[in-house]
Design a binder for these strands. Structure first.
Lengths: 388, 388
DNA sequence: GTTACTAATTATGGAGACCTTCAAAAGTAA
DNA sequence: TTACTTTTGAAGGTCTCCATAATTAGTAAC
């Protein structure tokens, strides 16, 4: 049925209580023992015992007592969120982005390295290496300090961190990303599809906070999805979930072609920039542009509606490059979805911008650590990089 | 992040160990203390302590020692699965079906009561009452003995156990099923869509055992779906998940019309029986019938493919009345799905027959009890019907 | 500068639940 | 009847928690 929690001896109880203390303290400012005791439900003496143990392990640190209070000043303890670091890497078409964050998810350093959209596999991997190296350097870290890294890329990714299929960059197919990045950093290296990471970021620090079921639409030069089900990223049995766009009858391949068909842009405009012109013209009321946007919205809504009907999410999040043009895109999209669906979810625009993938990568790294360092089954492990 | 397990005092540990003992013992024959000690990881004396406590509570019962073994005969204990009962009710078009089962899910009594397909709300509810009363009677139980009941019905159901929308039986819309059935039995009454319950049954005792992600297709006079995601029934934010058939572009409304268009049946055949003739003719090689089946399979595959692409399940299960004709239906369905999907899941036929909905209802009742009686947060509650 | 007040810390005693170890008991097999 | 096997029961010890009381280190008032 549910995974069972094997009981055990007394030390198990201490594990659980240590876990409770860490849980209360994470992501919060320093607390006194009395406050901790109240929030964990433990008695004061027991709380002190647990805290002292966690401090000697290196998870907790005493900070200056708060000044100017009545009574004897209380010792205060904070969670040492700087005990370990994680990386989030976004391998985009034009940019490699690397985020370094602490165990609370506080992003300390951000590095962007441009890369030619035409760059082949080797050149792109070199840019990834450079970006990671630079990020470690400015953060004053070495690869050994990194406890977990997640790499976001377009395409289908298998469980071993290999890109199984990349439509956008054919040369990318087959690249062993986890293995490659693992040369540079310690700890586990996870590889995940970029749309999924963007979806995860939205539930963490975006518009989908606290939502349990979310359909995320990456609308841009490529179209993709990320599904959050029951608060967790849904990958499917073979990591192939969310590929609704592949259904010929709903075809997302066609969707952008509507935008490309637009003839109102200056001659010789890079097809990648064309979309921006269409949205701009639509914004100014150009009838033909509005019609093109509407057709695009309809195609997008077709796949989105299929997902909404299938999953009944609380929220649909519109993200990706085109979400900047939500002012002209969101309404037609909403109308088309309302036309087709039984129950209409809230439909909102992402606010995380182009950092969402890297942010989601950070979050996935943290979730990985959460499972291995602060798990109910094992209690709190020592504050060292977990074995790979 | 994850729901936290508040630590606590020593009694918490006892709770967890009692839970571990119950977990080991459930659904298994009687075990000796030594065996229990081995399987729970507890020491022998502690195991005995826990077992004695559970016995005095009424959860465990001592049985005759196994004869003819070396050494001193060991006491044996079994889980008292008969301490409480659950019901599973299937309100079908032609039949009301009620299953009574013990806490291990062992079905002890089955009652079927026919009801006219044309029966209105009141008449159908009377049949439900009669079926439940009869089941209780033959099982020698009263409503007070029932700890949980789940009712399966077609249509959309809300969290309060009301049928929000029933396409198949318009008069059924708005019926307060949980409230109605609650008059007859004690404990919680859950109401759930029949396709979902059938899906649940498949993961419990059907072909989908051990599969984490499953798309269940109810193919019959109505077409429906049940989604199992991460081993759990997926309902969606407003219990509206799985309604992919409502998408006009994939329309399952059309699907059965292909079967109805068949003209090879004797004049005056009940449209409900028509499908059987089509499948039979197709089985005998009738070209036109084969073509009709193929068109139906294609329509069904369209929605199924959308679900498969969206969720990437390990398994697609074909259930419902038409699954009896899987010999002519499964292959065309499989081909159409293979045409459209990126990764092809296993596609199999249900073997549970027309008891699947009621069986799934039993399972849902048990899962409800599991959460309330054997939860990690609270430990083992006393063996009495939980408060409603 | 002393005294009163406040709230945290430290110390003490006790209870519950677990473990290991060993002797006694209750069977079967020779 | 004796030897062997396995379970049972009892004893002693450890760990972790709790409640309570005494001590300490500050602020506030006089």
């Amino acid at each position: 049925m549910t995974e069972q929690l094997a009981g055990g001896d007394l030390s198990r109880l201490r594990q659980l209580n240590a876990l409770a203390v860490v849980h209360v303290l994470r992501g919060r400012p320093a607390l006194t023992l009395t406050e901790l005791s109240r929030d964990t439900g433990l008695s004061r003496p027991s709380t002190e015992d647990v805290v002292l143990q966690l401090q000697s392990q290196g998870w907790l640190e005493e900070v200056q007592p708060a000044p100017g209070v009545m009574g004897r000043p209380a010792r205060r303890y904070r969670f040492r969120s700087d005990a370990g670091r994680v990386l989030g890497v976004d391998i985009g078409g034009h940019t490699i982005r690397v985020l370094a964050a602490d165990l609370d998810g506080e992003v300390g350093h951000t590095v962007r390295v441009p890369v030619a959209i035409t760059a082949g596999r080797a050149e792109r991997l070199r840019a990834v290496d450079a970006a990671i190296a630079q990020c470690l350097s400015v953060a004053g870290l070495t690869g050994a300090d990194i406890w977990a890294t997640t790499v976001g890329t377009s395409g289908l990714v298998d469980a071993a961190g290999r890109v199984v299929l990349s439509v956008a960059f054919p040369e990318w197919t087959g690249v062993q990303l986890a293995q490659h990045v693992g040369r540079l950093v310690g700890g586990t290296v996870l590889v995940e599809n970029d749309s999924r990471l963007a979806a995860l970021a939205e539930t963490w620090r975006g518009v989908a906070r606290y939502a349990q079921h979310v359909v995320y639409l990456l609308a841009g030069l490529r179209t993709g999805t990320g599904l959050i089900i029951d608060g967790k990223l849904h990958r499917g049995f073979a990591q192939a979930a969310g590929e609704i766009g592949a259904l010929p009858e709903l075809g997302w391949i066609r969707a952008q072609e509507h935008l490309r068909s637009w003839t109102g842009a200056p001659a010789g405009t890079d097809p990648d920039d064309l979309a921006g012109y269409v949205f701009a013209s639509a914004r100014e009321g150009d009838r033909k542009a509005v019609a093109v946007v509407r057709r695009y919205a309809k195609e997008l809504a077709l796949g989105a509606s299929a997902l909404v009907l299938a999953l009944d999410p609380q929220l649909v999040v519109l993200g990706g490059g085109f979400s900047r043009s939500a002012d002209v895109l969101l309404e037609p999209l909403r109308r088309e979805i309302e036309k087709r669906c039984v129950r209409i979810p809230e439909i909102v625009t992402s606010t995380l911008g182009d950092e969402s993938v890297a942010l989601g990568a950070v979050k996935l790294s943290l979730e990985h650590l959460q499972e291995h360092l602060f798990d109910v089954r094992t209690g709190v492990a020592a504050p060292v990089r977990p074995a790979r």
